[in-house]
Structure formats: structure tokens, C-alpha cells
């Protein structure tokens, strides 16, 4: 009954899935990061817990890393073979990176192409968006998605919207603005010639060592 135990600690990472999030029906899906998961349901639940602890999501897609092909302009030069990668023919989603500005997302999905394989899809993406800073393609058949029916969207994503205490705006402005104090001359220039709390002298940091 007992199976021989492997001597090496074995890899329990599970496959990596790239996560695409749509903030609203009008917005594109965006590549926001990845999760490790054993199967599609696990990938989507983990993606929600990791990436949707805040409002703004109506749908998540997860795609196994192995099903995604990406390239940067530099890679197209250094490894042009990437355009020859073969695979299943069909509909491929296309994502592009548009700017070097600070962003939370790698690429936005901008459309889909019919292609003979991932390399062909990447080539078409490159032709359609020659100025992009990176291209990403994956077959539509490879994606798993959260259910679009309103009940599921509600139960998956609405709880986050109600938790307004996760937004800094919830706390408003705390205390008077420091600038206000400065203008009115109430902000002292020196903190504490004689540090004290009420009548008690303040404890100096090196008098209270960590246990």
C-alpha cells in the first residue's frame, strides 16, 4: 500500500497561469500578474483572492503560461524563430504593451486574429501594432473565464465594492492639514527640547530594548 517516498522534496508549485482582468464592460482585459494553480477553477478562485480584493472587476480570465507566447522588439531581433512557433490553428487573442509609463498591467488585450498557430498570431500582432513595446498572444480555446451571468458577477466581485474601508478615501482628511499649521505659524521648528508626555519625560529609544 505504501508508495516509495521520493527522496527529493518535489515541486509543489503547480502550473503558472497568467491572469487577465476586466474592470468594466467598457474596458479591455489587462494582464495583471500570475497565480499558481492545479486546475482552471483553482486558478480563477486564486486570481480573485490575489487580484480583486478591491472594487473594479467584472470578469477574470486565466491562461496557462505554456499557452502564451510573448515577445519584445528586442526578442524579435535576437530570436526571430519565435514567429515560427507552431501550434493549434484558430482564434488568438492579442495583447500589446503601449507605453513605458508606470502601470499596473503588462499588456491590454486589443483584439483577436485568426491564425495558423501562435507564431503566426504573434506575427500578425506585430504587423497590426508595429510600435508596440511587447506583444502577447494565446488561443481563445486555452482561456478559462469566470461566468458572465449577472448572478455570478455579483457574487464574485460585488463583495469587494462594499468594503469601502479598503479605500483610503474612506478615512478622509485626518487632522488639520500640516500646510495650514505652517501658514498660521503654529508649527514649531524644533520638536522637543524636553521630550515629554504630559508630565512624564518621554522614554528614549535606547532605554527600552527589544526583548
Amino acid at each position: 500500500m505504501t508508495q516509495p517516498q521520493p527522496t527529493q522534496p518535489h515541486d509543489t508549485q503547480w502550473p503558472r497561469w497568467e491572469v487577465f482582468k476586466q474592470d468594466s464592460e467598457k474596458r479591455p482585459y489587462q494582464a495583471i500578474g500570475s497565480v499558481h494553480a492545479g486546475d482552471p477553477d483553482h486558478a480563477l478562485v486564486t486570481a480573485r483572492n490575489v487580484f480583486v480584493r478591491r472594487p473594479a472587476a467584472v470578469s477574470l480570465w486565466a491562461v496557462r503560461e505554456a499557452d502564451i507566447l510573448t515577445a519584445t522588439p528586442q526578442e524579435l531581433v535576437s530570436t526571430p524563430d519565435v514567429l515560427g512557433v507552431t501550434g493549434v490553428a484558430g482564434l488568438y487573442h492579442v495583447g500589446i504593451k503601449k507605453s513605458h509609463k508606470r502601470s499596473m498591467t503588462f499588456v491590454d488585450l486589443v483584439g483577436a486574429v485568426q491564425a495558423t498557430g501562435p507564431g503566426d498570431a504573434l506575427g500578425q500582432a506585430h504587423e497590426q501594432h508595429p510600435d508596440a513595446l511587447a506583444w502577447l498572444v494565446f488561443p481563445d480555446a486555452a482561456k478559462v473565464a469566470t461566468d458572465p451571468d449577472p448572478g455570478t458577477v455579483e457574487s464574485w466581485f460585488a463583495p469587494a465594492t462594499e468594503k469601502t474601508y479598503k479605500q483610503q478615501q474612506y478615512y478622509g482628511t485626518i487632522g488639520r492639514h500640516v500646510g495650514e499649521l505652517k501658514r498660521s505659524g503654529q508649527m514649531p521648528g524644533r520638536v522637543n527640547e524636553h521630550p515629554h508626555v504630559g508630565d512624564q519625560p518621554a522614554v528614549k529609544h535606547n532605554e527600552e530594548p527589544v526583548k
Partner: peptide, 8 residues
Amino acid sequence: TIPDPDMH
């Protein structure tokens, strides 16, 4: 009170 008497 910041526990740094030299803070200025």
C-alpha cells in the same frame, strides 16, 4: 512627542 531630542 518624537523620541529624538535632537529632531529639528
